[in-house]
C-alpha cells in the first residue's frame, strides 16, 4: 500500500522538514505583516506630520481648530505632548513646543504679578483674560484648554501650579505651593457667589457648618495663606472676609 509520506523512519524526516518549512513561512508572513505595519505607521506619521505642518498656522492661531486637532490626536492615541524628544511631538513637528512654553511663561508672569492682590489664587477666566491681554492681538486667541495644557507642562518645575475645581464648574489656578483643603474650596465657592464676600454667618447658614469650623477655615485663609482680606465694617455681619480672586475688578 502506497501511503503519502510513506512509512518507516524516512517518514519522520519528511514530517520534520514540513514543520520547518511551515515555521519558516509563518515567520516570513509575520515579518511581512510587521513590515507592513511599520510602513503604515511611517506613512501615518508622515501624513500626520504633513497635515500638522501644513495646518500649523491654523493650529497656532485658531483655538477651535487646535482643540479639534488635539481631540483627533488623543482619539487615535497620540499624545501631542509625549514623544521621544524633550518637548514632545508638538515641539518636534509643529514647533508648538515653543508656543506652549511661551504660554507657560506668560501664565507664570500673570500669576506672579497678580499674587500680591489675590494671594496666589486666580480664577481661570481671569487668567485667560490677562494672558490674552499680555499676548496682544497678534498672539491669537487662547482658551482655557490651552492654559490647562500649559499648566501641565509647568508641572516638572515643581512650582506648585495647580488647577482647582471650586464647584459650579468654576476653575481656579493656584500658583503657590499651598495645600488648599476641602473647607477652603467651599469658602471659595461661597465667595464666588457673593462677588468675593464671605462671612462666618454665611457659611453657617448655607453649609450648616459650626461657627468654629467656619472661623477656623476663614482665619487660616486670612492669616496663614493671605488668600482673603478682612473687613471689619461689614453692615450685615460686622466682620466679613473678601476673597480678592473672586472679586470683580474693572480695570
Amino acid at each position: 500500500m502506497h501511503r503519502l509520506g510513506g512509512v518507516g523512519l524516512a517518514a519522520f524526516d519528511r514530517q520534520k522538514l514540513h514543520e520547518r518549512s511551515f515555521a519558516e513561512l509563518s515567520t516570513e508572513i509575520s515579518q511581512a505583516q510587521v513590515d507592513l505595519l511599520h510602513a503604515q505607521m511611517a506613512q501615518f506619521r508622515s501624513a500626520l506630520a504633513h497635515y500638522a505642518t501644513t495646518s500649523r498656522d491654523s493650529i497656532r492661531t485658531d483655538p477651535q481648530f487646535r482643540h479639534a486637532f488635539q481631540r483627533m490626536c488623543s482619539s487615535i492615541g497620540v499624545d501631542p505632548l509625549a514623544g521621544p524628544r524633550k518637548g514632545g511631538w508638538w515641539a518636534e513637528i509643529l514647533n508648538l513646543g515653543d508656543w506652549q512654553y511661551e504660554l507657560g511663561v506668560q501664565i507664570v508672569d500673570v500669576c506672579v504679578s497678580t499674587r500680591e492682590r489675590n494671594g496666589g489664587l486666580i480664577e481661570m477666566s481671569e487668567l485667560v483674560r490677562l494672558v490674552s491681554k499680555l499676548r496682544g492681538l497678534e498672539g491669537g486667541v487662547i482658551t482655557e484648554d490651552d492654559v490647562l495644557r500649559s499648566i501641565r507642562t509647568l508641572k516638572p518645575l515643581g512650582a506648585g501650579y495647580e488647577v482647582i475645581e471650586v464647584g459650579g464648574g468654576k476653575k481656579m489656578v493656584r500658583s503657590v505651593p499651598k495645600e488648599l483643603d476641602a473647607d477652603q474650596a467651599i469658602v471659595l465657592d461661597i465667595a464666588q457667589e457673593g462677588g468675593g464676600r464671605v462671612s462666618e454667618e454665611l457659611l453657617v447658614q448655607r453649609r450648616g457648618w459650626t461657627p468654629e469650623r467656619a472661623r477656623a477655615a476663614l482665619e487660616n485663609m486670612l492669616l496663614r495663606d493671605g488668600l482673603c482680606w478682612l473687613d471689619e465694617q461689614d453692615e450685615v455681619d460686622g466682620v466679613a472676609y473678601w476673597v480678592p480672586s473672586a472679586m470683580h475688578w474693572d480695570e
Binding site: 492682590r117 493671605g226 473687613d231 473678601w242
Partner: peptide, 21 residues
C-alpha cells in the same frame, strides 16, 4: 483706584503681606 471701592481696604489687615500691599 479700584481698590478704593473694595470694602476691606478700610480695615487694617492682620496678614503682614496683605497689610504691606
Amino acid at each position: 483706584p479700584s481698590i478704593h471701592s473694595a470694602p476691606p481696604f478700610f480695615t487694617p489687615q492682620p496678614n503682614a503681606a496683605t497689610q504691606a500691599t
